[in-house]
């Protein structure tokens, strides 16, 4: 049993929810999201974010717009779709459930 592996598994499911949650608050540029996630130690290497965003986009939970940037080529800003909001709602329900279970048991 490797604790790093278990931690990675926990982060994995959580990361999907937190990504959707961040994007649901405002349209987001991946590099900004990466900065926040790294501060909170939710991702180790940045490259993991791009396939995740791509998958969420392919599953139509997210979409993106190109926006002009002052310092370089246009940037992709992700937004959440209706389907994404529903999906996020379900994840959050499960999350609250898990949280209460952990809290009551550790008391």
């Amino acid at each position: 049993m490797n604790v790093e592996n278990t931690k990675a598994q926990m982060r994995k499911g959580f990361l999907e929810m937190i990504t959707l949650l961040m994007i649901s608050k405002e349209e987001s540029y991946p590099s900004d999201m990466i900065k926040r996630l790294k501060e909170k130690e939710l991702i180790v290497v940045e490259g993991t974010m791009y396939p995740l965003l791509n998958r969420l986009k392919n599953d139509e939970l997210l979409g993106y717009n190109w926006k002009e940037s002052t310092s370089g080529p246009p940037r992709k800003y992700y937004f959440i779709t209706e389907k994404g909001k529903e999906f996020l709602g379900e994840l959050q329900k499960t999350w609250h459930n898990l949280k209460t279970v952990v809290e009551t048991i550790s008391k």
Binding site: N5, A8, Q9, R11, L15, I43, V44, E46, T48, L52
Partner: peptide
């Protein structure tokens, strides 16, 4: 190192 190699991705299990 910041972006990560394919080895890091499979270790991370996220991808």
């Amino acid at each position: 190192k910041i972006l990560g190699t394919p080895e890091d991705f499979s270790k991370d299990n996220i991808v």
